[in-house]
Design a protein around this nucleic acid. Structure first.
Length: 964
RNA sequence: GCCCAGAUGGCGGAAUUGGUAGACGCGCUAGACUCAAAAUCUUGUUUUCGAAAGGGAGUGCAGGUUCGAUUCCUGUUCUGGGCACCA
């Protein structure tokens, strides 16, 4: 009987379904284990082979843990709200709910095809009202809470209200606006609106104003990745910054807790480092500068208060509110012009810009100590959201300030002394200050203390901790998201009561934006009549707490029963990509902490251990052609395919920078080249080794895609080369790219599974390389894994003789192979080294085939061993071995030391670190004996050339090195 | 620009704690079986010199530490991810 994977996998799946083997109970005597994949967004393109990489890894681990005796929670669901569905709706008129439903059905099918052990009865979808009811409920928890800085935890806003009535806010400085100060008497004089406005400055979920990418032509707000070079991706309309009312989460209040929490979780150092850098805690001082001849002053934050006497100019963010007030009359036009330029720039562009730009406001600040007049500039390199949106520039101590000063010929004060060369700033802190009045001769550390003391005395500044992290924007002017459970009345946001939840997302037929930058909900009369909030929540709302819902997915009384969250606790292993390092992971950590603070759950970190998965990339193939190609927008670093004109849409990149020429037409700059690369769409399977495309394959591909690339066909027809065998071919350029529909290089797992089966697919994905690095998919390599599974099968079944498993006792050699393999698979699985585990399976099968082993004593354990990796085949063989029940519930085999212990070692013998020969010694041999034998060895003698060795290095069980 | 990661044969990769670089697989090579094909099995396969024995070089690049470095350190190049409204 041969390995008929189609039949085997169909039967196995049927059995699992009928016996409901993956149902998970919240009541069990076994220890619990919670392993979770990052929430997928069900995109219209379906799954490609890159998506399931992490899912296969977690599935293997979940099955492994179950076989090891754990009660394993391994759920799956869908992050179903999001921009792409809405975008698709705008383009096609199909309702997002319908397309999302369709996409989820497809994902379901594709996931089941791979044979995952999800308990689908626990599936959650963020767009179900039974789910987003609780997203709204948690939002209200945040809305009705503030962060008590003394306790370092969230607390009900109602208790804050009581405090205000008793003593004002003197023990609770306002996080939203530190200048707000009042006592109980003043508090009681405030109107309700005034009181609510103040409370809003405390709430963990609050309403404020923020800048968005505004596209006037489309009448809508755009996501960053919908903006390309300052133009909308759709239509190429100008995009500017615009201030709109926005909801925020006050995640900054949790900054310290989020930092400290990193010490308690098992994330990679790189991941922790990224989060630390994102939070960006820095200590320094906040200093007030008065503006000359005006009533205004502004604060700057600096990490180097010691450099206060090196200040040569000030820089405000161009959007700083003071700019309009202090700009001198003669500078008005220049400043306005510069601000217009900056408005068209994205934050990313502003940070990445190497070219120095800026503009003098005509105003001067007064140095707080020397009273020197310091010119106030604006420049795009200062961002409004960072610190106070203003900096004091010290050219001798900061390189960016130095370049700015040089560029605009601003005189530089040297406070560093000899260390400053005049060529570049000196930013180290190992010097003593000069030209610095009362801190002359001090080190920066000493000076900082003194400066801060003096500032405190004079009430012009204080020591300050600053965070780079900003409060999280939590609203979108979009339709397809969770409605906010908020009603507006006279400018006051009133939360809905719990009994009014869920506030259902109304059905609409048009998805266009509302008036004045509002979301589509503003177009619905019944919605606006109810005075509901017209913004919706962002994509990360539902995904910030979904891991809790899986624990108790059908609960209608609460988001998850306390007994369930107390049982499952944290996610033990969370698998996903590093692209979520600072977004999703920080938000869900914050939500967890808030829910913990408010007493709803018993743990304050959601994920105990995080495992990162790499991306599966794809090979894309390009033909170099001398076909005329033209592009509207071209930068050498960033050729942008979405901007290419119609006649050259297949062009991906110009061959080389030098060959690109430009001309002006219709007021635009066009770029063209006679040497460019054309993308060959979906041609992967026709390319042979050496990246050669043979003519007959090209024609096959063309016959499948008759409309494609006729120009290219003509071009190639003139340019085929001929090899020695007379075959015509063309050399292709290959590039490793992200697998994506737009790059025409996607591979659908369904196709692979139809051809080789799910078990082959699972093992091949794991075999490709380490889980956490990105690696290219190459369908050609899958044959080897498929051959391995057939060979595995042949240990049990012979093509002509059928079942060949015998009850003979196993030999020592066979047992050694088995136990060595069990040990290695166990170790590799535990450390998520699945590629080496697959290798070990291959080695074991090769060795057992060599030994001609068909013994139950070995093969029974071997089936259990491979179950997490190839569950379908294992299920079939398990049944053939005569076991009742499913192999997924079987125990994992155990290895014994006596079968894996070695007694001797073939040592490499090196002379001066270079291996020259090998000698075998017992592991317990005495070092002196070994040295003697080594020195007597013929090869060693030869390399010694009669000299006496200086010393002999002997590392037991590793190697021997003779130093001459 | 800033933060994080990676770079090893023709290709994917292995080397778990500083100790035999290239396990395992793909591809390629030669052969066996077969009327033939598929499937399967066997051989070789880092590179260079050499008929062979045996030597030299070799883990992006340049240095360093060490008896010994793919592994640690310094610098550097390139590639990938993230940079706050994609999810």
């Amino acid at each position: 009987m041969e390995y008929n994977f189609q039949h085997i996998e169909r039967e196995a799946k049927k059995k699992w379904r009928e016996q409901d083997v993956y149902a998970v109970s919240n009541n069990s005597d076994k220890p619990k284990f919670y392993i979770l994949d990052m929430f997928p967004y069900p995109s219209g393109a379906g799954l490609h082979v890159g998506h399931p990489l992490g899912y296969i890894a977690s599935d293997i681990f979940a099955r492994y843990k179950r076989m090891k005796g754990f009660n394993v929670l391994h759920p799956m669901g869908f992050d179903a709200f999001g921009l792409p569905a809405e975008q698709y709706a705008l383009e096609t008129g199909q309702h997002p709910a319908d397309t999302t439903e369709k996409n989820i059905a497809r994902y379901h099918e594709q996931l089941d095809n791979i044979g995952f052990c999800y308990d689908w009865s626990r599936e959650v979808r963020t767009s179900d009202k039974s789910y987003y009811k609780w997203t709204q409920w948690i939002f209200l928890q945040l809305f009705n809470s503030y962060f008590d800085r003394r306790e370092q935890k969230a607390a009900p806003i109602s208790s804050l209200l009581q405090t205000f009535e008793q003593e004002g806010n003197r023990h609770h400085p306002c996080p939203g606006d530190a200048s707000i100060r009042f006592d109980d008497i003043i508090w009681k004089t405030f109107t309700e609106k005034e009181q609510q406005d103040i409370l809003m400055q405390y709430r963990l979920a609050f309403c404020g104003y923020g800048e968005v990418n505004w596209c006037e032509a489309l009448g809508t707000v755009l996501a960053n990745d919908e903006v390309v070079n300052g133009l909308s991706e759709r239509g190429g309309h100008p995009v500017v910054k615009k201030k709109l009312r926005q909801w925020y989460l006050r995640i900054t209040e949790y900054a310290d807790r989020l930092l400290q929490g990193l010490e308690t979780v098992d994330f990679s150092e790189a991941m922790k480092e990224m989060q630390r850098n994102w939070i960006g805690k820095s200590t320094g001082a906040q200093i007030q500068f008065k503006v000359k001849d005006s009533p205004y002053s502004f604060d700057v934050f600096t990490t180097r208060p010691d450099t206060i006497f090196g200040v040569d100019f000030m820089v405000l963010a161009p959007e700083h509110e003071l700019v309009a007030e202090i700009t001198a009359a003669e500078q008005q036009d220049t400043v306005q012009e510069y601000i217009t330029y900056v408005k068209s720039r994205s934050e990313r562009e502003r940070m990445a810009e190497k070219k120095i730009s800026g503009c003098f406001t005509g105003a001067y600040a007064i140095h707080p100590f020397s009273e020197k007049l310091v010119p106030v500039w604006i420049s795009e390199y200062v961002l409004a959201g960072y610190g106070t949106g203003a900096i004091m520039a010290v050219p001798s101590g900061d390189e960016r300030d130095h370049k700015f000063a040089q560029h605009f010929n601003i005189p530089i004060t040297n406070i560093v002394g000899d260390a400053y060369t005049g060529q570049e700033a000196y930013s180290e802190k190992d010097f003593t200050l000069v030209n610095s009045d009362f801190i002359n001769g001090l080190t920066p550390a000493e000076a900082a203390v003194k400066v801060i003391d003096k500032m405190l005395d004079e009430h012009i500044g204080e020591a300050k901790v600053n965070f780079k992290m900003r409060d999280a924007a939590f609203s979108r002017q979009r339709y397809w998201g969770e409605p906010f459970p908020v009603r507006w009345k006279d400018g006051i946001a009133y939360p809905l009561s719990e009994s009014e939840l869920p506030l259902e997302l109304p059905h609409v037929d048009h998805y266009g934006p509302g008036p004045d930058g509002e979301g589509p909900l503003a177009n619905i009369d019944s919605w606006t009549a109810g005075q509901y909030e017209t913004n919706t929540m962002p994509g990360y709302a539902g995904s910030s707490w979904y891991f809790l819902r899986y624990m108790d997915p059908h609960n209608e009384q609460t988001f998850a029963d306390r007994a369930a969250t107390d049982y499952w606790k944290q996610v033990d292993i969370y698998i996903g990509g590093t692209e979520h390092a600072v977004g999703h992971l920080l938000y869900s950590r914050m939500w967890t902490k808030a829910l913990y603070d408010l007493g709803h759950i018993g743990f304050d970190e959601p994920f105990r251990k995080l495992v990162n998965q790499g991306m599966i990339t794809a090979f894309s193939y390009f033909a170099k052609s001398n076909y005329f190609a033209v592009s509207e927008v071209y930068t050498p670093d960033e050729p942008n395919p979405s901007k290419l004109t119609k006649q050259s849409e297949r062009l991906t990149s110009f061959d080389d920078e030098e060959s690109v020429e430009s001309f002006e037409e219709n007021g635009k700059t066009w770029h063209f080249s006679y040497s460019a690369f054309f993308r060959l769409k979906d041609i992967g399977k026709y390319v042979e080794s050496g990246n050669l495309l043979y003519k007959e394959n090209f024609e096959k591909w063309l016959s499948e895609n008759p409309n494609r690339q006729l120009e290219l066909q003509n071009f190639l027809n003139e340019n085929w080369k001929t090899n020695e065998a007379g075959r015509k071919y063309f050399s292709l350029k290959v590039e490793t790219e992200k697998m994506s529909k737009s790059k025409y290089n996607v591979v659908n797992p369904d196709d692979i599974i139809a051809q080789y089966g799910a078990d082959t697919f699972r093992m091949y994905e794991m075999f490709l390389g380490p889980l956490d690095v990105s690696k290219p998919w190459d369908t050609k390599g899958i044959e080897g894994v498929h051959r391995f599974l057939k060979k595995f099968w042949r240990l049990y079944n012979d093509e002509s003789k059928g079942w060949i498993v015998t009850d003979e006792p196993a030999t020592d050699a066979e047992l050694r192979v088995l136990h060595k393999t069990v040990k290695k698979i166990e170790q590799d699985t535990e450390r998520f080294s699945f590629n080496t585990a697959v290798s070990q399976f291959m080695i074991a099968v090769n060795e057992l085939s060599e030994l001609n082993c068909h013994k139950r004593a070995i093969l029974d354990s071997l089936v259990r061993l491979i179950t997490p990796y190839a569950p379908h085949m294992a299920e079939e063989l398990w049944q053939q071995l005569g076991h009742a029940g499913s192999v997924v519930a079987a125990g994992f085999p155990q290895w014994e030391e006596r079968y894996v212990a070695e007694t001797s070692k073939l040592y490499p013998v090196a002379i001066n670190g270079k291996t020259r020969t090998e000698l075998e010694f017992a592991l317990d041999a005495a070092q002196a004996d070994i040295e003697q034998t080594v020195l007597a060895d013929e090869t060693v003698q030869k390399w010694l050339e009669g000299k006496t060795p200086k010393k002999i290095i002997f590392v037991k069980g590793k190697m021997i090195n003779v130093v001459v």
